[in-house]
């Protein structure tokens, strides 16, 4: 609080700080990206809410319900692919700490291959259900099912594009603050998508199978 009662010596008081404080680029960037993750979390939360509201018996409009079409063992393979992808990304970040460029690239490559496996399995699953005439335009419940799972898949797709860009940047650039910041942000993104998948697996696939 400002108080004129306390005496201030104009000769000694520090009024100017100068440039030495130096904002940390990586910390500022990753904090901002963490905020984005927060908004992405809200996006998924809203989709989960819509899915919850549209999972009553009448939401399926006498059509198929998740109990009739989800395959938890099949999607468990997807789970493993995504988790191993996150693990591979973790190895990549360990290599980054040692400044090991080859290790970073190999880790990213492994992570993206496993991501592609996840996405391939997802597309295959969608085609399987389409073959059984289980489509998003069958009922409100199925619309919500597809929206939730495929919005997640779209995140994985864009994550993979980003990963390819990062592989290129690691190959061509030095480990600059910008490159390192992006690698950390992508790691957050990738891990967050895995966490979202855990929720989807539990609430959509497992719960759907058991209901």
């Amino acid at each position: 609080m400002s108080s004129a009662a306390e005496k201030v010596d104009p000769e000694k008081v520090v009024l100017w700080a100068g440039e030495h404080e130096g904002h940390d680029v990586i910390s500022t960037r990753t904090f901002g990206f963490w905020l984005y993750i927060l908004s992405d979390g809200m996006l998924f939360a809203t989709l989960f809410a819509a899915y919850g509201v549209l999972s009553y018996a009448h939401s399926y409009y006498t059509g198929p319900t998740p109990a009739q079409f989800v395959a938890p063992w099949y999607t468990f393979i997807q789970t493993m692919a995504l988790f191993l992808s996150v693990l591979a990304y973790g190895f990549s970040m360990t290599a980054l700490k040692h400044g090991n460029r080859a290790g970073v690239i190999n880790g990213l490559l492994a992570a993206s291959v496993l991501g592609v496996v996840f996405l391939g399995l997802d597309i295959h699953d969608v085609l399987r259900m389409f073959g059984m005439h289980i489509t998003p335009w069958t009922s409100g419940g199925l619309s919500a099912f597809y929206m939730l799972t495929q919005v997640h898949a779209a995140h994985i797709f864009f994550g993979l594009i980003w990963m390819l860009v990062m592989i290129y940047q690691v190959m061509r650039k030095e480990f600059t603050e910008e490159v390192i910041g992006r690698l950390i942000s992508l790691r957050m993104f990738w891990q967050f998508q895995a966490v979202m998948w855990v929720f989807i697996y539990v609430f959509v696939y497992l719960w759907g199978y058991m209901s």
């Binding site: 549209l54 069958t138 009922s139 409100g140 929206m147």
Partner: peptide
């Protein structure tokens, strides 16, 4: 899709 349609759940 049928999120907010009057029919189809």
């Amino acid at each position: 899709t049928h999120f907010f349609t009057a029919g189809f759940g």
